[in-house]
Amino acid sequence: MSDVGGIAADRLRSFIERIERLEEEKKGIQDDIKEIYAEAKGTGFDVKIMRQIIRLRKMDNADRQEQETILELYLQALGMATE
């Protein structure tokens, strides 16, 4: 392993190359996700709502309920709440 200025160059190169490979994989996955959204849109689904659902499903149930409560409170304050 060669050191350049106290840095293990081979080790650094290894980290960089691993990150670059993962970035490529991530881009491929992002492209796949984009295609799925396009397919869903093509069959009539609302992609914007689908993204919201995915975001909500990632959340802890308590956090989601807290956000929904605050949202309802704000809507009421603005006279926009559904009764």
Rank of each mutant, 00 (worst) to 15 (best):
I53M: 07
K34E: 11
K27D: 07
D10Y: 09
L71A: 13
K27Y: 02
E68Y: 03
M80N: 06
G28D: 07
E25R: 14
D31T: 11
L75S: 04
A9H: 04
K48E: 14
A40K: 11
N61K: 15
L78N: 12
N61R: 15
G28H: 08
R21W: 02
E66H: 11
E83N: 13
A40D: 04
V47Y: 00
L56R: 14
M80H: 07
D32L: 08
M1Y: 05
E72L: 09
R64A: 11
A8D: 15
V4N: 08
K58E: 13
I33T: 04
L78P: 02
I70P: 01
A81I: 04
D60K: 07
E39K: 13
S14P: 02
D60R: 05
K58Q: 14
A38H: 08
T69Y: 05
E23F: 05
A38P: 00
G44D: 01
R64P: 01
A8E: 12
K34Y: 05
I7Y: 10
F45R: 14
T82C: 09
L71V: 13
E68F: 04
E25K: 14
D3H: 13
A9Y: 09
I54N: 05
D10P: 02
D63K: 15
I54M: 08
K26P: 01
F15I: 15
L22E: 12
I54G: 06
K26L: 14
S2G: 14
G42C: 04
F15E: 13
D31A: 13
I53F: 03
L78I: 07
G79V: 04
G79H: 04
Y74M: 12
R13Y: 11
G42D: 07
I16M: 01
A8T: 06
Q30C: 03
L75P: 00
D46W: 00
E66D: 11
N61Y: 12
E39Y: 12
M50E: 03
R51K: 15
L12R: 06
G28C: 02
A77N: 15
E83C: 06
K48C: 02
L71H: 08
I19A: 06
E17C: 03
V47R: 03
G6K: 01
I19L: 07
I54Y: 05
